[in-house]
Design a protein around this nucleic acid. Structure first.
Lengths: 328, 328
DNA sequence: CATAAAATGATGAACGTTCCTCATTTTATG
DNA sequence: CATAAAATGAGGAACGTTCATCATTTTATG
């Protein structure tokens, strides 16, 4: 039997009779054979290409993600694995177009995407996956689409954690407020529900009031928030406006409420230093980018399907004391 | 010019006249040459071997580290890089012996070690490094030894973070206690000083009392701690006895003080769930193990010296709400 | 300046796969 | 059962390095 035959079996490229296939596989098992990666990558002639589809927004977060991706790729160069990062505006239409062009171009062997909520994306992912085009989701899931695997956080848990923190950072009185905005995406709903779930389980919470920002008239609604927040002991900002809310809180007279939110940017970092923001809940974007690359690499280059359908990344608590590790 | 000549230059294996060396390097620069890793690993015949010297203790922590190491190695198999993990008892003598045998055996191309405090280890590391035997430190540093690079936490910062948390988790009154034990290692001193530094900077702290456990008569000293802690609002356990102290705190009547410490094990995990331990400060052992392997790999296999002398890993805050991501 | 030693240069065989090409055997079809 | 088509098998070149070996040139030494 020639190496070529064996290779055909190992890559199930067909053209080998079942009896031989068995013989090869059995022998491989017996000898505890594992292909040598160096040789394999070296001999492989064609590039494997993967497209990463990311929203442009919010900038700082995706920049960090991108660093994680690039960083993971550094370890992998020379192995014939290539990724293109495609940024789309934050509209569904734009993302759909990008995805279509990726699939139709037939230039890619797979895709990793942070999909917008809703049917259109689910549908196209589903049909691509059924068509044997592997897709991984990222940061925002689309479980019904049949994507191979998801990398990202559990936002319900994130909301619960926010509740846990709000409770720990406050004293006797626990009058809480949640702030969301109009978009009220799936992620935001999950966070809110998690926070509420915590307050119900906990029992010590006096009340939770829900405030919604209006993106059209941001100034007005922030003003309203400020007025509504004077009798509150902790505020949980579930939307992306943590820094803006912090600006308002900073203006409050007297004892300031505990302020908790998500993610980190330059403004939030400074509010942490000033103890206006007590804590912010982060996911390590670097790690996330890294993991997504590895999943795609393992699948496409090493024939290793993802071990789990969900790769839930950890939620990290960032305060003044450890912020510098998270913001560089 | 033959590939062999070029190769000699690229691996500065000598035997090439300076003019040629220059010519080659210049051309390489000009062509933006980077060696192909697959081909390089494949053609390389000899194994590179690295010894990891770890204390056996505390078990759970080093088990996690080991997982991180093994995990990093999985991505690297077939590349001719091999590591042996050597565990030593917690005595200096034992560690010295292990290190000597590693160096004398001449079977290794490098070493990663979590060195015990003190002159003996510093000395031997220094002489080995001067002798062109690369050594990386890990979890516990030995900067004067001239090790190539350190991977681990900044324990002074860890103490400060503990102070920050203690302050945030308490209300009006801030009467704190620090608990250490007899060993009072460098790490523990750093943590203590960091905590104290925070309390001084902060200004709001009423007092900090220092309690020292006696390892010989643990029961007695825990008993003593319990009595000394009734008038305290927050306790910071800087030594490894967080779970034991938590057991004592659990028995206290009335309002329990905030309890903060380091690391995670099964007992601490349960005390977090019960809200006896409010928060514990962790370093990701998985990541640490991973990073140490990569540093050694980059240095020995890719000729990439570590970018930084200190690879300070982040300090992570673990509470009931996110403990599950840290304990599996 | 003869000679040995050191320095430098060229050659080509590995490393363990992948995959193309061609030869041979089996199977399907009338 | 003849023939074409499909299935299977064997052989060997290529991937881009590393490194041992041998050939040649330069340098040191008396």
């Amino acid at each position: 039997m020639s190496p070529a035959t064996v290779d055909r079996v190992l890559h199930n490229r067909g053209g080998v009779k079942p009896k031989t296939v068995d013989r090869v596989l059995q022998k491989a098992e017996e000898l505890n054979y594992t292909p040598n990666k160096s040789a394999s990558f070296l001999a492989r002639k064609k590039l494997v290409k993967v497209a990463f589809v990311l929203p442009e927004y919010p900038e700082y977060f995706w920049k960090e993600i991108e660093k994680g991706i690039v960083n993971a790729l550094e370890d992998i160069t020379d192995y014939g694995f290539h990724v293109d990062i495609k940024k789309t505006s934050n509209t569904i239409a734009d993302q759909l177009e990008t995805v279509h062009s990726i699939i139709d171009s037939e230039a890619y062997d797979g895709m990793v995407i942070c999909p917008k909520d809703g049917i259109p994306l689910t549908t196209i992912i589903e049909s691509a996956v059924n068509n044997n085009f592997p897709i991984f989701t990222f940061n925002n899931d689309s479980p019904e689409s049949g994507r191979l695997s998801y990398v990202g956080a559990d936002y319900f848990e994130a909301g619960k954690l926010a509740g846990d923190l709000a409770s720990k950072f406050t004293g006797e009185r626990k009058r809480f407020a949640i702030i969301t905005d109009e978009a009220d995406t799936y992620q935001m709903k999950q966070k809110r529900q998690g926070f509420e779930a915590f307050t119900i389980e906990d029992g010590d919470v006096d009340f939770v009031k829900l405030l919604r920002l209006n993106n059209q008239s941001m100034e007005d609604s922030l003003e309203r928030v400020r007025q509504n927040v004077e009798d509150v002991d902790a505020i949980y900002v579930a939307c992306g406006a943590l820094a803006e809310v912090a600006d308002q809180v900073k203006q409050l007279e007297g004892k300031k409420p505990v302020l908790i939110g998500h993610d980190l940017n330059d403004d939030v970092y400074h509010h942490l230093q000033d103890n206006i923001v007590t804590a912010t809940i982060c996911q390590d974007p670097h790690y996330q980018g890294n993991l997504a690359v590895r999943l795609a690499f393992n699948y496409l280059m090493l024939d290793k399907p993802p071990e789990k359908e969900d790769n839930i990344v950890k939620l990290e608590i960032v305060t003044r004391g450890n912020a510098k590790y998270y913001w560089s």
